[in-house]
Amino acid sequence: MNWTWFHKLGSPKWFFQWADRWGKVCFWFGTVLLIVGVIWGLGFAPQDYQQGNSFRIIYIHVPAAVLAQSCYLAMGIAGFVALVWQMKLAPVFIKAVAPVGAVMAFISLVSGAIWGKPTWGTWWVWDARLTSVLVLFLLYMGVIAIQNTLDDLQLADKAVAVISIVGVINLPIIKYSVEWWNTLHQPATFKLTEKPAMPVEMWLPLLFSALGLYLFAAGVSMWRMQNEVLVRERRANWVKEEVMKRGV
């Protein structure tokens, strides 16, 4: 297998130029998909036979929840790369993605509460799914807090990499919480091996908004990484050239 792309990713300069191009593509393509998916879902998809219109919050809740978990998984992988290969960009990635994931976890908790009130009859209940997602949110908060309080950059990077790796244990707990224990939250509608438990006119807008949110988050994360790269490499010649070229 050809590993040049992996080694190229280790170069902040190469990444900066690559992200310059692809960040914009991801961001704008994602924004369009997201807007289409959300408007389609909230305005035009059929309502549910039991929950009526209140089920439409799924088009915000599910993409945010999926992304919150994906971001953390990506951070865990980056933490592993940061500790084992000590690639420069891995801690940059964690630092850039953590707030994005935290916002997603927050949106999924809040939208879930808003959904829970009319359907279940309560904003919050301490069942396994809700609690484990709250733990995910707190893990994000911990990562952000450590990054901001430790002055020693290397120490902060290492500490955050460790939390990112260890916190990944929470992800299967979130995923299987609805199967291992009795919960108020229903089991997953989408499974890899089975047909989704909703018709195509319902899941297609959901696919749009989920894909859109993925690309949107990727674009935002790339921009945040670019910023962090500029700060960390501020003494490098290529950064000076880049800044001069753009006339900042």
Binding site: G121, L184, A197
Partner: peptide, 18 residues
């Protein structure tokens, strides 16, 4: 003292359910 409703993971439009 409190009754909460659970719902399952299946969603469908009212016409299909009918």
């Amino acid at each position: 003292s409190e009754v909460l409703a659970k719902h399952d993971e299946e969603y469908m439009p009212p016409e299909i359910s009918a």
